[in-house]
């Protein structure tokens, strides 16, 4: 018990002291997770719209696949992407392994199904007249899709935040594809893993607290955004 309190005390000490290493990890985590989430959103929005609106054969199968991907363990994604990025893999020539790009690729695979599933479900329960109304007003298809997402924007935002939460908190992909390189691919979570393994509980706790605080702030923002004027 004493050790736990010591750790928390050390955590605040590190944070208030502006520990450069700690802030470096926070920066890396954010940069990588944000990039992943944005790319995932760009992929997942059209996919979600397609699945949410579409009526075609095999749609149920695709739904099930995406819902399954939601539960994909991060290490499985890490391993699969590793097989692609290793020099002997299909994408080996790009030398992407052990880089932030590699982490981004893995995290995009983690985040995309989350946004896709949440957006397509949101569209399915949304008012079916939204699309028809846009089209009836002579808007192009792309603008109609944008209007559709706009009408369900809280849920869209929620899906993006859920995806961001998953990738900023994951460790498997970052560790396996990033290689936990100091100053480059060490993130908050791989940092925690390393510090814990080295018995540096105080700094590990500090990073854990940072993660908690970040997620807490994001949730406050989301809560405010989604509870503003309901209509």
């Amino acid at each position: 018990m004493g050790q736990l309190f010591d750790s928390i005390a050390e955590a605040f000490h590190l944070l208030s002291g502006g520990d450069i290493e700690v802030y470096g990890l926070i920066g890396t985590s954010f940069r990588v997770a944000l990039t992943s989430t944005v790319i995932a959103a760009i992929i997942a929005f059209p996919l979600g719209i397609w699945l949410g609106l579409g009526k075609f054969k095999g749609k149920r199968a695709i739904d099930i696949i995406f819902n399954t991907l939601l539960f994909l363990p991060t290490v499985v994604v890490g391993h699969l992407v590793y097989m692609f990025l290793t020099r002997e893999g299909p994408l080996g020539d790009y030398r992407l392994l052990f880089s932030q790009t590699a982490i981004v690729i893995g995290q995009v695979i983690l985040a995309t199904p989350i946004i896709t599933a949440m957006v397509s479900n949101a569209i399915r329960v949304a008012d079916p007249r939204i699309m028809a109304t846009s089209l009836a007003l002579g808007t192009g298809r792309l603008r109609a899709y944008a209007a559709l997402l706009g009408e369900i924007r809280e849920l869209v935002l929620l899906s993006v935040v859920a995806a961001f939460g998953r990738v900023i908190a994951e460790v498997g992909v970052s560790m396996m594809l990033g290689g936990n390189i100091f100053g480059k691919t060490r993130t908050i979570t791989t940092g925690i893993a390393l510090l814990t393994s080295q018995g540096e509980f105080g700094r590990a706790t500090a990073l854990g607290l940072v993660l908690l605080i970040i997620v807490f702030i994001i949730n406050i923002l989301v809560y405010q955004a989604t509870h503003r004027a309901g209509t």
Partner: peptide, 27 residues
């Protein structure tokens, strides 16, 4: 674009009537 359709129970986008009207003629 030549057609204007009005549903029996029309849907309105979020935001003011002004915004709804602007949506119809923007672009």
């Amino acid at each position: 674009g030549h057609l204007g359709y009005m549903a029996q129970e029309p849907y309105f986008f979020r935001g003011s009537l002004q915004k709804n009207l602007e949506f119809a003629i923007s672009g």
